[in-house]
Simulated assay, not measured.
Amino acid sequence: MSTTLDVVKGFYAATQTHDDEAIVAMLHPDFQARTAPGMPCGAGGSFHGTRDAMMRIWGAVFRDFDTAAYAETWQETTDGTVVVTGHYRGAARATGRAYEAEFAHFWRVTDGRISWLHQYTDTAAWRAALE
């Protein structure tokens, strides 16, 4: 049986290989996400539901960026929230410009699947790569 931390680590592995099916499989049917409002390509805001979140967040990001999230620190809190910090690294597909943007992710897992994400990131770094 996977621990909460294992589930979250699996998510990062799936994003690094752009494995859309694995990402969807890891998301709880009642998945909720809140991403940085300034994210480009319509990926910022509040999202609910597995397919909606997948397409509107990661589908849009993977369409416009060759990118992945690289976790550097992991902390599980006493209430079961997993806090991860690290950097997104990649390049904008339209311009070829590389970027690196710091992030902080807050995760919750329910019934072995990711049920909640709150993301903070340096949206200016993402946008600069598109210009």
Results as ranks from 00 to 15, higher is better:
66 D>W: 07
19 D>L: 03
84 V>G: 02
2 S>W: 08
32 Q>V: 15
29 P>T: 14
73 T>D: 14
44 G>Y: 02
27 L>S: 03
114 I>C: 02
74 W>E: 03
20 D>T: 15
2 S>I: 11
113 R>A: 02
61 V>T: 07
127 R>Y: 05
43 A>R: 02
71 A>N: 10
78 T>L: 13
43 A>S: 09
13 A>E: 14
34 R>G: 12
126 W>T: 00
83 V>N: 04
69 A>K: 03
87 H>Q: 13
3 T>V: 08
26 M>L: 15
129 A>D: 05
117 L>R: 00
33 A>L: 11
41 C>N: 14
98 A>I: 08
120 Y>K: 07
15 T>Y: 06
97 R>L: 11
131 E>P: 02
85 T>Q: 13
124 A>Y: 09
107 W>A: 05
94 A>M: 12
130 L>H: 01
24 V>D: 07
97 R>T: 12
17 T>D: 05
39 M>D: 12
11 F>W: 10
15 T>V: 15
119 Q>Y: 03
61 V>G: 00
75 Q>Y: 12
49 G>R: 02
9 K>T: 12
87 H>I: 12
113 R>G: 00
26 M>N: 06
131 E>K: 10
107 W>I: 11
108 R>N: 12
123 T>E: 07
99 Y>C: 07
62 F>S: 00
101 A>N: 06
20 D>W: 14
117 L>M: 09
75 Q>W: 11
10 G>K: 00
75 Q>A: 13
72 E>D: 14
81 T>G: 05
106 F>W: 13
98 A>M: 11
75 Q>K: 14
83 V>Y: 03
125 A>D: 04
120 Y>V: 11
33 A>H: 08
66 D>L: 09
90 G>K: 00
21 E>A: 15
128 A>T: 10
37 P>M: 09
3 T>M: 07
45 G>W: 05
80 G>E: 06
74 W>F: 12
119 Q>C: 10
113 R>T: 03
8 V>P: 03
7 V>D: 00
88 Y>C: 01
34 R>Y: 13
81 T>R: 10
32 Q>I: 14
39 M>L: 15
56 R>F: 11
20 D>E: 14
113 R>C: 01
31 F>G: 03
95 T>I: 09
86 G>L: 08
15 T>N: 09
82 V>R: 00
5 L>E: 13
30 D>E: 15
85 T>A: 13
108 R>G: 08
91 A>H: 14
119 Q>V: 04
27 L>P: 06
34 R>H: 15
129 A>E: 02
55 M>W: 06
65 F>A: 10
74 W>D: 04
112 G>K: 00
95 T>C: 09
47 F>Y: 04
13 A>K: 13
118 H>G: 13
78 T>I: 13
12 Y>H: 04
103 F>D: 05
83 V>M: 07
84 V>I: 03
114 I>A: 01
44 G>A: 07
9 K>D: 10
12 Y>I: 02
42 G>Y: 07
49 G>L: 02
85 T>V: 12
26 M>D: 03
44 G>K: 01
10 G>C: 04
25 A>Y: 05
124 A>K: 08
22 A>W: 03
63 R>G: 13
48 H>E: 14
50 T>H: 04
20 D>Y: 14
86 G>F: 08
